[in-house]
């Protein structure tokens, strides 16, 4: 019994860590610009796919991964500079359409630049599972968890210790006020897009040895990540972490204990329930709505 429980937990945490990273990407961009970036899942896809193809071109795995993350970061910044920043008069709705359009565009481009096949990377630390009280976990799952933890800690330090990070937080709180005290909000926007893209790409690199990748994996990740961000309270990085892990765990326990056919349903039912009871999400900002 305990063995099954542990096995479900490992599964839920691994998948949940990826949702959490996608949710974090949503949160960072939302904070800087009020944009809900539905292209967030494509960053994960580009990270994984470029690593696969750079490696096929002969680069060692580590170099391919690093280059893929840099490449995705550049794409993230371009998305801001070429699309979001240009749509000055656009409503929130139009911005959503822009990011959905960007996600369709990136998916189409990936299908041209790469291919339509499924791909996989070798596990970074071997394929032999580790056993803990009868349950097994792959070393790669531990790397995913460690990577997610490192990103969250790093971001916390960045936002709370560095000057730039504080400027991001200031922008998130009140854009006009931030601009008045001399924060370059255009730079902050580009930074947020770059950062989100880099986080997405890292998630893509870490997860590809476990879950495989192809040009169309982004959409489902974006949906789950968005749901996780809303569950945690859109705009709160800690909420993104908890929301992501929660959805991963609910799915795993749903599949293990209830019904594998309706496991995605269990995740969304919990979200609906929580939003009905706690409309700001678990850790949403308690600010007054401005009009």
């Amino acid at each position: 019994m305990l063995e099954s429980f542990l096995q479900f937990t490992f599964s839920g945490l691994t998948v949940g860590a990826v949702y959490a990273l996608v949710a974090l990407g949503f949160t960072i961009i939302y904070n800087a610009s009020d944009v809900v970036n539905f292209a967030q899942g494509e960053f994960v896809m580009i990270g994984g796919m470029s690593t696969v193809f750079l490696r096929q071109d002969g680069l060692p795995l580590a170099a391919a991964a690093a280059l893929a993350i840099v490449l995705t970061t550049v794409i993230g910044i371009l998305l801001d500079k070429l699309a979001i920043a240009r749509a000055k008069r656009a409503s929130v709705l139009s911005l959503v359409i822009i990011t959905i359009g960007a996600s369709i565009f990136l998916r189409g481009a990936a299908q041209l630049v790469f291919d339509k096949q499924l791909h996989r990377l070798p596990a970074f630390a071997g394929e032999d599972p580790l056993t803990l009280m009868g349950a097994t976990i792959l070393p790669q799952s531990l790397l995913v968890l460690a990577g997610a933890a490192a990103i969250f800690v790093g971001l916390w330090l960045f936002f709370n210790r560095s000057r730039t990070g504080k400027a991001v937080l200031a922008t998130a709180n009140n854009r006009l006020a931030a601009r008045l005290v001399g924060v370059d909000t255009a730079f902050i926007m580009a930074l947020s897009f770059g950062l989100s893209a880099a986080i997405g790409a890292t998630a893509g690199v870490l997860i590809t040895p476990l879950t495989l990748t192809s040009y169309d994996v982004g959409l489902m990740l974006a949906l789950k990540g968005f749901a996780a961000a809303m569950l945690g309270g859109l705009g709160n990085p800690f909420g993104a972490l908890v929301g992501g892990l929660a959805i991963g765990l609910i799915e795993a326990f749903g599949a293990g204990y209830v019904s594998s056919e309706y496991k995605d349903a269990s995740a969304f039912l919990v979200i609906l329930l929580i939003l009905f009871l706690m409309p700001r999400g678990l850790f949403g900002k308690k600010t007054v709505e401005r009009v």
Partner: peptide, 20 residues
């Protein structure tokens, strides 16, 4: 053919950016 998806995405972005 293969460029279908890319063009669809571009048109969506273009209209939303230039015709808010």
């Amino acid at each position: 053919h293969d460029f279908e998806t890319v063009i669809l995405g571009l048109i969506m972005m273009g209209v939303a950016i230039f015709m808010p």
